[in-house]
Design a protein around this nucleic acid. Structure first.
Lengths: 112, 112
DNA sequence: CAACCATATGAGTGTATGCTCATATTTAGT
DNA sequence: ACTAAATATGAGCATACACTCATATGGTTG
């Protein structure tokens, strides 16, 4: 059982860095597009309506963070979500945001 | 049951924004310091060895994101973790990083 | 090898934001 | 009211990084 000891400075940096990788809408869109299986760059470019250069850079960032895996097949490169904690992570955050939006909606109701 | 439908552009922005708030070592340090109960600004400044101005700004960011709660008592302002999903979130990320570091350590072992 | 795909990357630009200094604001005590 | 303490904030600077354009790289086919 790993109990909550104080994280070292270096550990905090790593955790922050991981959150930073997930702090871009385009990267989240890519991750989301890959939830139902691997896709190559062209497919992702089409799905996300981004430029090829930009998508390629984001894929590199996600791969360097060990969030995506890379598989080369001929001319194409296929990416897939390789970190099993990512779905859970997104789920938790989405839940928190839904609750927050619901709360705000309630305020609008009662305060006009 | 909320099944994984594609998130809207706006939802992605919100999720990314939430991750961004957690993507700063100093803010993580503050959150960590608050895991064992509320503390006022002076206490947090002492614990984190940051400047008062900087800590105050980070606390504002975290409060605006509904991650921390604020309670005023006389001259002091007490902050506490108000979002129950935060511990789980940090736990998941820490776990992922531990695994990643373990994998890297193994590579060092076998490749010398 | 030449031409052509799919993907990656160097360079430059604009924007966002973390940090600091100085000062403002709020509240308590005399 | 005056002073002092705790916290917040305006302004400026430096850095990080997302985006784009043009071009490079790697791999396939004729």
């Amino acid at each position: 059982m790993t109990k909550h000891r104080a994280l070292s400075e270096e550990a905090l940096r790593l955790v922050a860095q991981r959150f930073a990788v997930l702090a871009e809408p385009m990267r989240l869109r890519l991750i989301q597009a890959l939830f139902d299986g691997e896709k190559n760059v062209s497919q992702l470019v089409a799905l996300t309506a981004g430029t090829q250069a930009n998508i390629s850079r984001h894929l590199q960032t996600l791969t360097a963070a060990h969030i995506l895996g890379r598989r080369k097949e001929g001319l194409q490169v296929y990416y897939s979500v390789s970190d099993p904690t990512i779905p859970k992570l997104c789920e938790v955050v989405c839940g928190a945001i839904e609750k927050q939006l619901a709360r705000q909606a309630k305020h609008f109701e009662s305060q006009g």
